Simulated scan of single mutants.
Amino acid sequence: MKIAILGGTGNIGKGFALRWGQKHDMIIGSRNAEKAEKFAAEYRDILKRQGYNANITGSDNKNATEEAEIVVIAIRYNQLRSLIDLITPVIGKQIFISVVVPMEKNLCYISPNAEPRTIPITSDQFNADYFCFTMPEAGSATQEIENMLPAGTELASAFHTVPAKKLADLELELDYDIGVCANSEYSKKVVFGLIKDISRMRPLDTGPLEAAAMLESLTPLIINVAARNKMKDISIKFI
């Protein structure tokens, strides 16, 4: 398959490129095509040293979307609207996968319609930065993307609990469970296959797109647990 990573020059883009680039054609997408090609060349070199003749190219986000069969949206939440507006004219039969998480440091929302509030931390034990899931009005970033994409576009939500550094470390086998939300059984089947392409990863069905907020909210939870308990690059396994 031909897979585009929109925001592929970011932290998690490297891991996806190195893991999937062993089996699939990869397109690194960025707002700047020259920057994308620079990173693509770096990823090709890494895989070449591992014995893989990978087909990894770089392009701007719009062209990457047009050329791909699978499109992974791996950008910051606040960039969603401009990205979707950019790529909408070239959306066809691609399957989109969102790894986007709306979260803020030291800022929590009580509910989608509530005003944001900063929760004071007074105890010395917990006097540290923390992250909160800031639920969009649509319920999740995934549902917001669904509302912006053309009707009928295939969309799934996954990979929110994967630590980027470990994903990019090819010496590691990642014994993680990956939740997948999608309304289409076809989309789930394709995403399950991509998860299984990464050694020891196990895909789990976590429901329709309406359940995506539960997946997205795991990201700040994991970051907070790691920071407060002096752990590093942790993930989730259901046992």
Rank of each mutant, 00 (worst) to 15 (best):
K105M: 14
N61L: 09
G13E: 03
Q22F: 03
R202G: 11
A226S: 10
N224K: 13
K188H: 08
V99A: 14
A212W: 10
S235E: 07
K48E: 06
M135V: 15
T122S: 12
L86W: 12
I110C: 05
I178N: 06
D45A: 08
H24A: 07
Y176E: 06
E37R: 07
G51A: 08
L155W: 06
V191W: 03
A158H: 12
T219Y: 10
K230L: 11
D197N: 07
F16P: 07
A68K: 09
N53P: 00
A54F: 05
K230G: 03
T153I: 11
A226P: 04
N127D: 10
S157M: 14
F131I: 11
L218N: 13
I46Q: 02
A36Y: 03
W20P: 06
A40K: 05
Q143C: 11
A41W: 00
D25E: 01
L6P: 02
P89A: 00
V191C: 03
K35H: 09
I178L: 12
F192P: 14
I84S: 00
Y109N: 09
M148S: 06
L83Y: 11
R76D: 14
T134Y: 13
S111D: 14
K93D: 13
A36K: 01
I73W: 14
Y77N: 04
I95Q: 11
N147C: 12
I198P: 03
M214F: 14
P102L: 00
V99I: 15
F238Q: 09
V90K: 06
S82A: 15
I97V: 14
G152M: 12
G7D: 03
G193R: 04
A41I: 11
G207T: 12
T206F: 13
M135G: 15
T88M: 07
I84Y: 07
E154C: 12
R117S: 15
K189H: 10
C181W: 05
A141G: 11
V180T: 04
R200D: 15
V72K: 12
T57F: 02
R228Y: 13
N61F: 03
V190Y: 07
R117G: 13
Q50H: 10
K105W: 14
E42S: 05
F96A: 09
K188L: 02
E137K: 15
N224M: 10
L172I: 01
N127M: 04
G7M: 00
I222G: 03
G7Y: 05
N53W: 01
K196L: 05
I236T: 02
I5N: 08
Y52H: 10
S59A: 01
Y130C: 05
D177L: 01
N183T: 01
I5K: 01
M135N: 13
R202V: 08
F96E: 02
A227I: 11
E34L: 05
S235H: 08
A128S: 13
I28A: 07
S235P: 02
N229H: 06
V90G: 02
L209S: 06
Y77K: 05
K62V: 12
E146R: 13
I12M: 03
A74S: 11
F159K: 12
P163Q: 09
D197C: 01
I12H: 09
I27H: 04
R81G: 08
T142K: 08
K38F: 07
K105R: 15
A168N: 04
R19C: 05
T161C: 09
M148D: 06
T122N: 15
E154L: 14
K2V: 04
P89R: 03
L172H: 03
R49H: 09
